[in-house]
Simulated scan of single mutants.
Amino acid sequence: MTLELVEQNLRPEFSAIVAVSDVARLADMLTSYRAALDAPGRSYELICVTDGREGTTMEALHRLASDWPELVVLGQHPWSDDDAALLVGVKRARSDLVLTLPGWPEIDTTDLPTLFEALGDSDMVIAARSGRDKGGLRRTLFHGLLKRLFGLSVDDPFCRVRLARKPVLEDAGGLGVRQHFIPSIAAQRGYQVTEAQLRPAAAEEEAAHGRFVFKPLGHVRAVLDALMLFVVLKFLRRPMRFFGAIGVPILLVGLATTAVLVAYRLFGATALADRPVLIFAVLMVVLGIQIIGLGLVGEIIIFAQSRRMKQYTVRSIQREDADAIAEKTKEAAGSPPQRAGE
């Protein structure tokens, strides 16, 4: 048996990842996941990526892993954030099927098998907590932002429970943004994204973990990430379209204003030395040329790096058997004509 076959036999059917900094009762949360992960009867591994500087949490996790062979604890140091830690866990996952889980109660863990049933031929299935209020201001604004920028708005964008194929998470999560945008990025890149309704976690469980929601600075970063993603996904390969859409109108306004001032000077004998509009017009022309120049520089960089950039991914290749092709060729050609006397 070759080494590749041995590794394939030892590879789990799916990899579950919990990427979160130190939160209250993290070890207890992983324990609650254990019964749900064992229930489907599939082989798995659970990768927990957390802040390695938290000694108390790390000790509790190591004690938990001592009698849980499927649990892998990664104490990342230095710690950046949950989103970067998720990508670390995805890269270390041994299975081609990855389940992302939060470090606090979000869903009823007994409903996790529903994600595997809903995946089918899709590339990613997102958990949507049923029965939750969808009319909040934050949720409404976030829905509108995702719909406007990316054309996709899921029912529960703040839920971190997702089941996806590993290449999809590596591709969508490689931009280093918040996990809430991963489904939108995946859909923008052509992957098939679906949703599955799961029951939310009990209110007393959420209260016991003391998870706070309102983060003003986090919401501002989310808006900035959304705008950055829109520009990157839409204009990364054609930067001149983005800079040109800004620079050309500015240049035209500056040229038109300058033309009007020159016409007044030539035909109206109006002095231009004491007119501030002339300075404004010249600045607009210079600014428009500079912005367009940035777009040209971006086009040169993209052209130079185009061979290294991944233009697309091949989902599958279907090829007919060589013997079947040869047989069809003979049938199409027909039998050769018989010579006289034969």
Rank of each mutant, 00 (worst) to 15 (best):
S184N: 15
A186P: 04
A186T: 08
A187D: 07
A187C: 02
R189M: 15
Y191H: 13
Q192E: 15
T194M: 04
T194Y: 02
T194D: 12
A196I: 06
A196M: 07
A196L: 07
Q197I: 00
Q197W: 04
R199G: 02
A201E: 12
A202R: 15
A203W: 06
A203V: 12
E204G: 00
E205C: 01
E206N: 02
A208Q: 12
A208L: 13
A208S: 13
H209C: 04
R211M: 12
F212S: 07
F212W: 08
V213A: 06
V213C: 00
V213P: 01
V213E: 14
F214R: 05
K215S: 11
P216M: 13
P216I: 10
L217K: 09
H219M: 12
V220E: 14
R221H: 12
R221N: 09
R221E: 10
A222N: 05
V223L: 14
V223I: 15
D225K: 06
D225Y: 04
L227Y: 11
L227T: 05
M228P: 00
M228K: 09
M228I: 00
M228E: 10
F230C: 02
V231K: 08
F235H: 15
F235R: 04
F235L: 04
L236E: 13
L236G: 13
L236R: 13
R237L: 12
R237N: 04
